[in-house]
């Protein structure tokens, strides 16, 4: 390959925009990204404060119990608010509908995923795994909210119910922690995959990518 020397003075030739930028569309609307960001921040604070209340090593290191309790209670209470506010957005409502409905292709996707089959897996905007996660975490947050309120406002229910609520809150907290960690892990994996894929498809004119194929 021969290289052509560039002009030393400005020319009229325009550099075309990389095709990547031109065709790239946002997967989510600003309202959806805002709702997700706010929910994520509240969820992380809620989990972190829970860990400081529950894990002895962290409880000892952090102390300040009254403050940590307040943070946990309020982040937990506010957790559903961003999604509820986001319902004003048409795009978010449309995505909720997509997450809710399962078609035959979702069953196929799940089967293929569980059996680790290769081959094409049809999916819409969301795959069946993402749909399951969304529904499960929504239900779990509501249960955590309900049991949490019973523990917070001790006058609401008799002791037997409060003890039961504590039991469910403790164990479901463990499950939510694991599932949310899985969600973040898969998102990070997806993100690095996408970045790698983009770099392969659109080498951004780096000379090294041409040189790689040279014998």
């Amino acid at each position: 390959m021969t290289s052509t020397p560039g002009s030393a003075v400005p020319t009229a030739a325009k550099m075309p925009r990389p095709s990547e930028q031109a065709v790239r569309t946002r997967r989510f609307s600003p309202a959806e990204r805002w709702a997700h960001g706010a929910t994520a921040a509240l969820m992380l604070l809620c989990i972190a404060s829970a860990a400081c209340l529950y894990v002895p090593v962290l409880a000892q290191a952090v102390g300040r119990r009254a403050l940590v309790v307040t943070v946990h209670e309020w982040t937990g209470l506010l957790l559903p608010v961003p999604l509820l506010a986001g319902l004003a957005s048409r795009a978010l409502r449309a995505d909720l509908r997509r997450l809710d409905r399962f078609g035959p292709h979702d069953r196929h996707w799940l089967r293929a995923e569980l059996r680790r089959e290769r081959g094409p897996r049809p999916q819409g905007k969301f795959n069946a795994g993402q749909k399951l996660y969304a529904a499960w975490i929504a239900g779990a947050v509501l249960v955590m909210l309900g049991t949490g309120l019973l523990m917070w406002f001790t006058g609401l229910a008799p002791l037997a119910v409060r003890t039961g609520a504590t039991f469910v809150h403790d164990w479901l907290a463990l499950a939510v922690g694991i599932v949310v960690a899985g969600h973040i892990w898969m998102a990070l994996r997806m993100w690095t995959h996408r970045k790698a894929l983009r770099a392969l498809r659109h080498p951004d004119g780096e000379p090294a990518s041409g040189g790689m194929n040279r014998p």
Binding site: R97, R98, L99, D100, R101, F102, G103, H105, D106, P122, Q123, G124, K125, K131, L132, A134, A135, W136, A138, G139, A140, L142, V143
Partner: peptide
């Protein structure tokens, strides 16, 4: 894949939880 019909599995999971 994104047809508006289909089983409302998400709703059932939330109620199930």
């Amino acid at each position: 894949p994104d047809a508006p019909q289909g089983t409302p599995v998400g709703r059932r999971i939330v109620l199930g939880m």
